[in-house]
Measured scan of single mutants.
Amino acid sequence: TFVEFNGKKVEYPTPEAAEKAAKKLAKKLNLKVTKKNGNYKLE
C-alpha cells in the first residue's frame, strides 16, 4: 500500500500501517488524505 505526498511515494507493508502513516503525515503537513485504488494520497 502506497502513501503519496509531495511527489514522493512511500510503500508500507500493510494497509493499516499506510493508513496510520497517512493520517499522521496529513496532520503534520496540514493536508487531507484521499484514498484511491487502495492507496493514500495527501493533498
Rank of each mutant, 00 (worst) to 15 (best):
T1M: 07
N37A: 08
E43W: 10
E19K: 12
Y12Q: 00
K28V: 12
L29N: 05
E4K: 01
N30L: 06
A21E: 06
G7Y: 04
A17D: 11
A26K: 02
K27G: 08
G7W: 03
A26R: 02
T34I: 13
T1Y: 15
E11W: 15
K23D: 09
N37D: 15
A26Q: 03
T14I: 03
K28N: 09
K36D: 14
E43I: 13
K35Q: 11
V10Q: 09
N37E: 12
F2A: 05
E16C: 12
A22N: 00
P15Q: 12
E43F: 10
K8T: 11
N39P: 00
P13G: 08
L29T: 04
Y40C: 07
T34G: 05
K41A: 11
K35M: 14
L29P: 01
N6M: 15
K36W: 11
V10T: 10
K27F: 09
P15Y: 05
A17K: 09
T14P: 07
A18Y: 00
A17L: 13
E4M: 07
L31C: 10
L31W: 03
L42A: 02
K28I: 14
V10G: 02
A17E: 12
F2K: 04
P13L: 09
L31I: 04
L31H: 03
K8I: 13
K23I: 13
K36R: 11
K41N: 11
K20E: 13
N39V: 14
G7E: 05
A21T: 03
E16T: 08
V33R: 00
G38M: 04
K32T: 13
E4C: 09
K24N: 12
K32C: 14
K32E: 07
L29Q: 04
K41C: 15
P13E: 08
N37S: 06
A26N: 01
F5Y: 13
P13A: 11
N6G: 11
K9M: 13
P15L: 07
Y40D: 03
K41M: 15
P13Y: 07
K9F: 12
E43S: 09
P15G: 07
K28F: 11
A22D: 00
E4L: 06
N30S: 08
E43H: 08
E16R: 10
A22Y: 01
V3C: 05
V3T: 01
Y40Q: 04
K41G: 06
N6T: 03
P15F: 05
K20G: 06
K28M: 13
K24V: 12
A17N: 04
L29G: 04
A22Q: 00
V33D: 00
K36F: 14
